[in-house]
Design a protein around this nucleic acid. Structure first.
Lengths: 340, 340
DNA sequence: TTGTACGCGTTATCAA
DNA sequence: TTGATAACGCGTACAA
């Protein structure tokens, strides 16, 4: 029970293999009668071209590799799904891999994607300035689109304007009267954390308010880190009166910490999250957030890659900056007296 | 700037192509000194075998295709991620595709995975008894593992015991005194919906309570469907006193509907969800749920496929039934008088 | 133990 | 317009 190949089609249609290939790829002209015969044979035999052999010959797998931190984070999943759909429409498939934000995993995945001859890669990175990562990334023989990262080198990139988003968020809190605002975000080795810290500083500077450096917590973008940092902050004799969760999936950790300490939102503490989630919308009170559209990023990423793959190999790198949106909800209020 | 092939390695090491291949695949014995030379050449040239050519020659892509409904549903994402990790450990990659629960998309994806010569497929299906889907599925030349589906035919399958889970949930509500309990779930063309309806009936039968057929809503497994069905139920003159959301991502829709109607949980209405989510845990009050471990299913699915791919092609189909767990939280209470 | 040569299924080139 | 043929990069049977 062999698979049917183009040879079988040719034989069944009584033509040469080359002719069969020609009608399949429909590029050059072929006698209508013959074309018909070949098409009939294809239908009769239920012939499907072998994508592996095509990849071999065409030197293109029509497959894109994606490296994300954690696909169980809904925002990242919606990015991946949107990218997959857009790529699918162009005949590309998506190979997915999760790095868990670990550089060793990321290195291995990079090798994997290169070995499997992906036509392109769309990825984040755990550390923009890591020398080995940068070297491997730069040596990749296919176009790369960076997701919310700006490593050294010329890469296409999808960037979010976290700086402005954070500035707005902190400005909002300062206007409410907060003077001890904490920011919990990821390691500053990557754009989103750096940008948020900048925005945090921007807003304070504009208001002429000094930052308590111990209120600036940069660890990792995990839920758990959100929990630990928030717990530590709230356990102090002088807890902040507001916390901004500066990471996609950190809000739930922060809220758990608040709940565990018995603080009430927004009476005892104001909270702002990053990225809009079921949690932020349905918590009581609903949580004020800086949101953005990750699905749009996914589509744009697909676009960027497809452009490169269809003739645009030599285009200068394009970095697209996507705006964030500030959504005010019930989780922020003026600080209560006893915490001032 | 050509890619370096095994030929280059052979030349650099001063051996034949066959010998180079032998040391790479380390199957037969080769002179230690020569092996050394080849390995040095590999390192010097940074040679990486071409996975496409290997697939061609070995007739195996070491790639598994996954078809899920919607990867932005965190439970499904954690399934996919766990499967991907387990497969990765065995040298397999995962190609991901989302069907949106639409049969035409599913058909197309099935063709895609077959054309791309996946070594195996792990999938759900929008409709178990659809003739065309069943035919294409059965004609697939690679092993298939069904995720929470039992289509006709001999397939490996990962099945959840939704029936028992639902029975426990409804039993709980009946014990609290509820007599008008609504179940909102997906179309009964698939195992999870059918099993839940059975469990729903089981519990009622055991308690000798009649079911109001209009309280049994089987539509689709979407958040939106949860919202619409719940809205309709709550808008009646005789609304149910309890609603069970019988679908992974339906709870948020149900809660939104409840909130929109101004009902309070659990005073005006009791709620039980399916699958444990941030939402269920952090809502106020936290929502009672039937939960299970989707990551475990992902790992088991990988195991099933790998077993088949390593010699177990002729094994009888294995269907694994995974238990659910009933987690009682604050969203259920005895029905209040005015609704009785 | 090593080298040679074939074939995996395609596409593309070159004559006819 | 068509047919024969050479790659693509690799693994392996067979011969040496």
């Amino acid at each position: 029970m062999r698979r049917v190949t183009i040879k079988d089609v040719a034989k069944a249609a009584g033509v040469s293999l080359g002719t069969a290939s020609r009608v399949i790829n429909a590029n050059t002209s072929v006698d209508p009668a013959i074309r018909r015969k070949v098409q009939d044979a294809i239908a009769a035999l239920r012939y499907q071209p072998d994508a592996v052999a095509q990849s071999m010959r065409r030197r293109s797998t029509r497959t894109i590799g994606a490296i994300v931190r954690d696909i169980t984070v809904p925002a990242l999943a919606s990015f991946v799904q949107a990218a997959q759909q857009a790529l699918h429409d162009e005949g590309y498939a998506l190979l997915i891999a999760c790095s868990g934000d670990r550089r060793d995993h990321e290195l291995e995945l990079l090798r994997l994607l290169s070995q499997r001859r992906m036509d392109g890669v769309i990825m984040t990175t755990a550390a923009e300035d890591d020398a080995e990562l940068a070297a491997v990334r730069a040596a990749l023989p296919m176009p790369v689109v960076m997701l919310d990262r700006t490593p050294p080198g010329a890469f296409d990139a999808l960037l979010l304007d976290h700086r402005e988003g954070m500035r707005q968020a902190v400005e909002h809190l300062l206007r409410l009267g907060h003077r001890r605002i904490a920011l919990i975000t990821g390691a500053t080795g990557v754009h989103p954390a750096r940008a948020r810290v900048q925005g945090f500083r921007d807003a304070h500077a504009a208001a002429g308010v000094a930052i308590d450096p111990t209120c600036l917590r940069t660890g990792s973008f995990t839920d758990q880190s959100g929990f630990l940092e928030a717990s530590a902050l709230l356990g102090r004799p002088d807890p902040p009166t507001a916390i901004v969760a500066g990471g996609i999936d950190m809000l739930s950790g922060v809220l758990r910490a608040i709940q565990a300490r018995g603080f009430a939102v927004p009476r005892d503490i104001s909270v702002i999250g990053s990225a809009d989630t079921d949690l932020a919308m349905l918590a009581s009170p609903p949580v004020t957030v800086v949101r953005w559209d990750y699905a749009e990023l996914g589509r744009a990423g697909a676009r960027l890659l497809i452009d490169r793959l269809s003739g645009g190999a030599a285009l200068p790198p394009r970095q697209i900056l996507f705006p964030t949106e500030f959504i005010s909800r019930g989780s922020c209020a003026p600080p209560s007296r006893q915490h001032c």
